[in-house]
């Protein structure tokens, strides 16, 4: 379904049109359930999450702006936020740093940088400018909704090191995306 048709369904939903809302559900529930399931990794929880997601979509349809986001990106953002809020609500509310010393950055990996050249999309090209493990951390955080603690465990580095790495990676990524 085209973004234009999805935008039209969201517009009608904003006006309280239930048929449009049902059509919007039919067109998008598999994708949004896929988002919730990937992050929550549990079907029952993911089903609870997308119920909440569509309640929010119904209530917030009026705030959708065609000039700011594609319709599907807007819907996925609502689903990601809901799923991430759910898993974060079961984790510590703040970051608890240990006293471990910072781990130094590994040297840049030229192979990973060469990998992503050519005609790749801007985001892929810019991720390719990061070291491989940093790019993988950014993607895993976004797609799987990993917390800082989970990223630190996965990379076997202290939490504060992980946060420094990721923040530096984000700033590099932003510089590249703005170029």
């Amino acid at each position: 379904m085209s973004q234009e048709l999805l935008s039209g369904l969201i517009a009608r939903t904003a006006l309280g049109d239930r048929k449009a809302f049902s059509a919007l559900y039919d067109q998008t529930n598999a994708k949004l359930f896929g988002v919730a399931l990937r992050i929550l990794k549990d079907r029952a929880q993911a089903e609870d999450a997308i119920q909440e997601v569509y309640v929010r979509i119904w209530r917030r349809a009026g705030s959708f702006r065609v000039d700011q986001a594609s319709a599907m990106a807007w819907l996925v953002t609502i689903a990601r936020n809901q799923a991430i809020d759910l898993i974060r609500s079961r984790q510590p509310a703040t970051l608890e740093y240990d006293d471990a010393p910072d781990v130094a950055d590994a040297s840049p990996d030229p192979e990973a940088q060469a990998l992503m050249s050519g005609e790749a999309r801007r985001i892929d090209r810019c991720l390719g400018e990061l070291e491989e493990n940093k790019a993988a951390a950014v993607v895993a955080a976004y797609v799987e909704g990993l917390s800082y603690q989970e990223l630190a465990d996965r990379n076997a580095v202290p939490l504060n090191t992980m946060r420094t790495w990721l923040r530096r990676s984000l700033i590099k990524l932003r510089e590249c995306l703005n170029r």
Partner: peptide, 17 residues
């Protein structure tokens, strides 16, 4: 949000109950 939404392709559709 706009830039990272390009990664949304990674989400495979799944059918809920």
């Amino acid at each position: 949000q706009a830039d990272l939404s390009n990664l949304d392709e990674a989400y495979q559709p799944e059918t809920p109950h």
